[in-house]
Design a binder for these strands. Sequence first.
DNA 1: CTTCTATTTGGCTATATGGCAAAATACGAA
DNA 2: TTCGTATTTTGCCATATAGCCAAATAGAAG
Lengths: 110, 110
Amino acid sequence: MKSRLNPQYEARARIIKAMAHPSRLFIIEELQKQERCVGELTEMIGSDTSTVSKHLSVLRNAGLVSDEKRANSIYYTLRCPCVMDFIGCVEEVLSANAKEHANILKCCKK
Amino acid sequence: MKSRLNPQYEARARIIKAMAHPSRLFIIEELQKQERCVGELTEMIGSDTSTVSKHLSVLRNAGLVSDEKRANSIYYTLRCPCVMDFIGCVEEVLSANAKEHANILKCCKK
DNA sequence: CTTCTATTTGGCTATATGGCAAAATACGAA
DNA sequence: TTCGTATTTTGCCATATAGCCAAATAGAAG
């Protein structure tokens, strides 16, 4: 990490890094629809509760979600719904990749 | 990584992960303005050539940039400029965090 | 062919991350 | 207080990543 870049890039990278995991992307997408507690998310994702709890703390530390305790569960909410805008672009990259891959295959078949 | 999530989430996470590094964010931003070769980017970032080269290969493998050899340099281009849209939202998260942090400080001073 | 330049690759170390299981904590209810 | 449920924290291990240096490669230029 030795570079003379503006520290702003590190701040941005921290946020993006917090999103860079399949389960956390799922959580973000789910919380955009409605708030959820750890147990519900764990159930949907299908991995250990402690693992999901860690993912949530990563998202919380990045400021991407906020939590509120009600009854005996903690409900998580997406703080900046704009993060969902990412997905459209990511899908665009993925389909561009898929198209290119198809072209390479077609080319090699000849 | 043991979960029963749709593999689509992994594909998306791979793309986002490729962006989750300060130097790579800088490269993306710079390439959005104009194409650049490894030497130029290395100069701007201020780290080892091999390190920058590796960052570029991460971006290339993710399909975020493409490269073209001309003269005796390899020029990199941003493939999907929409990735720059991320930054606006990331900044929004950062300023929300800063605001919250300021509130906490104010609250504790009392 | 040889040299020079630009870039990539391999080897190495240090550090960070994900996942699971067990222990710890928080707190409402009995 | 004690019990039970929901969540977080901690310890451990395996794997992945960043960084630097040195060596390898690809071409252009001589």
